[in-house]
Design a protein around this nucleic acid. Structure first.
Lengths: 236, 236
DNA sequence: GATCGCATGTGCACAGATTCACAAGCGGTG
DNA sequence: CACCGCTTGTGAATCTGTGCACATGCGATC
């Protein structure tokens, strides 16, 4: 077993590691072999101390006076995130969003090949989206079992989302990415993350609204606290 | 001016208000007229005290011993989030994702009509997606100006995302929802939110990974800290 | 091999968010 | 009109995350 397994990494850090990873991979492709916490912070739009603290949870993989070796860091982050192998995903719902997700190369490229896409509507079955043929809902379990899928994506209308989640769980999936604007109820031991685009827009709306009423109130000066860099707005 | 404007609402609360709003609107449709912090907490998957504190930032709109009047709360949250009027959005990029977003009814339904979708690739111009005709990039400014758009959505490949953002800003947009996996650099005063689906999957991967290695290490018992309810997993 | 510059790793103080626990106060009941 | 049950609203304690500031230690240079 590796030196110190089982250290718990703060959620906030876990959420940033993929971002660092992305940047590091890009740097590798640009031929960069070494990077400092400052450099990484700049590219990631965060504070350098935060980068160092985040990376320190993985272990002491930097060299004082020098920086981090990009390749090695990529390897370590990948290992920590469990990205040293692919995680096939199954998509439930072949509507607009499901189709876009299946067709979106970004999944495949980043280690999440689409093992299958299923829909409860037989009219959609057998149509081809993003190189994957839509299968009937009845084949869900079989897809999960045969391709060893542990991550499911819910891309159904809100009303069917809970049903989709139930079927995924029954089929053996233990992590769910939910795009439907509803709270999924799942057994303990199953991880759910929710992405709700309307919520994101509403948060932006709040900031717009605020800006507008501040302007109306005649606030002459700075509309927002000035962040680190010159060019960079509120990241709300 | 209303009683106490200009109170600052914590970001964490702002991110939850849309969720409460969604639930409250559903409850209205079910004919529910009054709801307690407990009830709302249950439906939203959060702690009741948090609900009360969140709502208290809006003002004292509840009735002790009774709860909150659903209609009135909807009205207040809408007002606070700036959802008392529509916010037309413009989408840059008519690829898979852009098309799905344009076709996704959820935007329109929730106060964010698609004012236009533009693409830099002339081959895509004039095709019809989700009832909206794709326009050339050159018309971006005109769309923003004429429809009074302040929110832009970046749905381009990563390499073009910064360019898209620059054009949006130049056209007068002050909030951007970015789906490209890159850090956008924008002037101070422009708000950016990033949604990266691969990042979400990678976070799930981390939890899967953890589960797997915990199991391998022979952890007999509970895999995760038990959350509030029986049925409900890690919400990571 | 001693010295110096530089970037990491971390102790510490601060800020923000969450949760507890309870006083305040509304509405119904006798 | 006094009492009681119930739920809000909020002070205070706690937990989590952030960022500063500096000691630590590596590598290059002389």
């Amino acid at each position: 077993m590796p030196p110190h397994r089982a250290r718990r990494i703060p959620e906030a850090t876990v959420a940033r590691l993929p971002v660092y990873l992305q940047i590091l991979v890009e740097q590798t492709e640009l031929g960069v072999e070494s990077i400092s916490s400052d450099g990484l912070a700049e590219l990631g739009g965060v504070n350098a101390a935060k980068v160092r603290k985040d990376l320190s949870y993985l272990g002491s993989y930097g060299t004082r006076g020098v920086g981090y070796e990009v390749d090695y860091l990529v390897y370590q982050i990948r290992r920590e995130l469990g990205l040293d192998h692919d995680w096939p995903v199954v998509i439930v719902g072949a509507g607009n969003l499901g189709q876009a997700l299946a067709g979106y190369g970004g999944f495949n490229d980043r280690g999440f090949p689409v093992a299958g896409i299923v829909d409860i509507d037989d009219a959609k079955v057998d149509t081809l989206v993003g190189g994957v043929r839509v299968r009937p809902m009845s084949e869900l379990s079989q897809i999960v079992a045969s391709r060893n899928v542990s991550i499911g994506v819910v891309a159904t209308p809100p009303a069917s989302a809970q049903d989709a989640a139930d079927r995924l769980v029954k089929a053996g999936v233990t992590s769910i990415l939910n795009f439907a604007p509803v709270l999924l109820s799942v057994p303990v031991g199953v991880t759910v993350r929710k992405v709700d685009m309307a919520v994101e827009l509403q948060i932006l709306s709040y900031h717009e609204q605020r800006r507008a009423s501040a302007a109306a109130a005649g606030t002459g000066g700075q509309l927002h606290a000035v962040p680190d860099e010159g060019r960079r707005g509120v990241s709300a």
